[in-house]
Design a protein around this nucleic acid. Structure first.
Lengths: 203, 203
DNA sequence: CGATTTATTTACTGCTAGGTACAGAAAGGA
DNA sequence: TCCTTTCTGTACCTAGCAGTAAATAAATCG
């Protein structure tokens, strides 16, 4: 049951990776089909045949980003021995990734479709959903810390998750503004120094 | 020395305010000249005669935003009796403004031109400069706190300014994602709870 | 009054956007 | 071998973009 018809002449996965990079650096609306075909090394009909349309290609690029770039942070969050260690590792992984010299700075999910035309509202809403899901995952990890005894019971985990997510999102802006990896880590230091006072139960 | 020629038939200041609002909600590249003329209630040649071109109009809108929306935060920063009170008031003013129901959520300087095409790099760089200037102003306020005795000498004010600026920038993303005023204030609470441990001199 | 200056309206320009029709090329199946 | 299927390249389509030319309207100046 081999494939029928003329075989594709380009590497779909590689083309998708390249599309992801352009979307990541210029944003959804800032990237044209021409930009994409150029960097992907293919013609428009090949792009449409393989990926559907610009929006579908973007969503697939976001899925790839999640799988590749989001992986380290998720694993850090999951595998940290305590909630605090998990949050620290997650923030530091991301701070490093956001300032890596071989990638566009900052997080693609935060930056690539934050404002735009009404007709692309669905794309922005999708990324917003993605961000909210990340915040929820962080909250669940903090709840797990309570269950496992390394976070004081009664800690307002939703509040903490919102705070650390806000810092994480702010890091993307800082990265775009030219902050170095060390600068981002120093910001993470600050956020983590707050941990003890934040997890202490309210008086 | 009255004005010569046919008088302008629209209120330039009002038109600029309306342009600002559209840019604020859709971003620089997400706003077309047609969007602008529609909401400003004028025709294209009137727009070009009065404001030059899209980029000049945007920069003027940013200047207006700074003057109108940035004013409360700047004053709070300046007039707070201590550095801590000043930072708290600035963050709370902004958290409230970012979630005001009669305005687009979040900060125009942070959101309206964060990614885009290479040809609009100058616009993005201008806003980045604006953000860096804000961070610098915060750092100077912290230095003033040292000079006035309400911040421990030896405090790393640049580090603190980077941290609080990051939180402030993150609030804009949270606001766009639908966080309420209370939610933003709770994030500010967390950031401020960290104050004492952050200003303490390193061991 | 007429001359000058500036704003407005309509219509247009050149360009780029996202997306597609069509003809030919390269594979498998019968 | 011929047919079917799928991909590729060229050329094209419609729509929207930023920006402007030209004619006209409304004001001041002399």
């Amino acid at each position: 049951m081999a494939e029928r018809g003329r075989p594709r002449a380009f590497d779909r996965a590689q083309a998708l990776r390249r599309a992801m990079t352009v979307f990541w650096s210029r944003g959804y609306e800032g990237t044209s089909i021409g930009d994409l075909t150029e960097v992907m090394g293919i013609n428009k009909p090949s792009l449409y045949a393989a990926f559907g349309c610009k929006e579908e290609l973007f969503l697939e690029a976001i899925a790839l980003y999640d799988a590749v770039e989001g992986n380290a942070g998720e694993r850090a969050l999951r595998d940290g021995p305590t909630a605090r260690a998990a949050v620290e590792a997650m923030l530091r992984e991301n701070a490093q990734a956001y300032s890596a010299s071989d990638k566009p700075p900052g997080c693609m999910v935060v930056l690539s479709a934050i404002l735009g035309t009404p007709e692309n509202r669905a794309v922005r809403e999708r990324l917003a959903e993605n961000r909210r899901a990340g915040q929820e995952a962080l909250r669940r990890r903090l709840d797990r810390g309570i269950a496992e005894g390394d976070v004081p019971p009664g800690t307002d985990t939703a509040r903490l998750a919102a705070f650390y997510t806000t810092v994480l999102e702010g890091l993307s802006i800082q990265a775009r503004d030219g902050a170095s990896g060390e600068a981002l880590q120093a910001i993470v230091d600050c956020a983590l120094q707050a941990w003890d006072v934040l997890v202490a139960p309210a008086p």
